[in-house]
């Protein structure tokens, strides 16, 4: 540092400028960023993948050109009976789908709950989840609107399952080890259940475009006494599930409304890092049982 710099450095060092970060802004921005990350990651990934590779750029351009100029429908079943595989016996193509599901190391999806009132009106819950599923581990990121409220992990622990959760709203965590599973949240198990019952599907819901994919849907009554109905849509090109809806779930103590759980935005083999399923606790978080949090919240 020469004399000029030293002189200026001395001058600057005597000036008081309040540059202490505000923790409120830091926390608020953190929540906004996590929400933005969850919402945008999939779209960005697809766009970047196409635009960064020379081959995919040409492929995308070629597809657009041919579709626009030639008016050729690429999707199976779009104009030819031969492409409509779903009209064949489900026992055959259902097995193919089940076999495909077995090959995936990980699947992620978005989950949303919708309340259906007695007059048929719908109210979408502000709470939504991102689910991560591997062959033996699970993770659920729970959002309240734009705020990442909680992360839950279900990972193998000896002969049982370790359930670890962290809550950003209360800055707390809870760890529990014992028997148990991810239960009904597991979207892959839900897919398997639907596919295995396609033989007894009530009706074909027809073709529609969901999240940009040409899909075909089926409605299947559940195997229980409830009025529950499962609906599943498959990508007509890959035969993989694109959306699952569980309709008609009863709400405790509220007979005038039912629940619909929607799982969509499936990402198959999304290339998750290994530590996605490693439970972590941010520094400074305190140990608290969920009942304690509930009691504190109710107060």
């Amino acid at each position: 540092m020469n004399d000029n710099e030293k002189q200026f450095k001395d001058f600057v060092s005597n000036i008081k400028l309040d540059d202490t970060p505000d923790t409120n802004h830091r926390d608020m921005l953190e929540r906004n960023l996590l929400c933005a990350m969850a919402k945008q990651s999939r779209q960005i990934k697809i766009r970047r993948f196409i635009m960064k590779s020379q081959i995919t750029k040409f492929a995308a351009a070629a597809v657009i050109a041919i579709v626009v100029l030639g008016g050729i429908t690429f999707w199976p079943g779009g104009g030819s009976d031969n492409g409509q595989w779903w009209l064949g016996p489900p026992a055959a193509w259902g097995q193919e789908i089940l076999a495909s599901l077995d090959t995936f190391k990980a699947v992620t999806c978005h989950e949303q709950t919708v309340f259906v009132m007695s007059d048929g009106s719908e109210h979408t819950s502000l709470t939504w989840n991102i689910l991560y599923v591997s062959r033996d581990s699970y993770r659920r990121d729970i959002y309240d609107d734009d705020f990442l409220r909680e992360i839950q992990w279900y990972v193998p622990d000896g002969g049982g399952t370790l359930h670890h959760s962290i809550r950003y709203d209360t800055k707390s965590y809870f760890t529990h080890s014992g028997e148990g599973s991810f239960g009904n949240y597991d979207p892959v198990e839900r897919m398997r259940s639907c596919v295995s019952r396609l033989d007894s599907a009530d009706r074909l819901l027809g073709e529609e475009v969901i999240d940009g994919y040409n899909c075909v849907g089926f409605e299947i009554s559940a195997d229980n006494s409830e009025d529950r109905v499962d609906c599943i849509w498959f990508d007509t090109e890959t035969k993989l599930p694109v959306r699952i809806e569980i309709r008609g779930l009863s709400v405790t103590d509220q007979p005038d409304k039912t629940l619909t759980i929607i799982q969509d935005q499936f990402d198959y083999n999304p290339g998750l890092s290994a530590d996605t399923f490693i439970p972590q606790t941010p520094e400074g978080f305190i140990h608290a049982h969920p009942d304690e949090i509930k009691a504190a919240t109710e107060k």
């Binding site: 399952t161 148990g180 239960g183």
Partner: peptide, 17 residues
């Protein structure tokens, strides 16, 4: 819903190493 059966007998603090 999530099924966790069994008593809470192991408390484990997991933190960044």
């Amino acid at each position: 819903m999530v099924m966790i059966v069994g008593t809470c007998k192991l408390r484990r603090v997991i933190s960044v190493d």
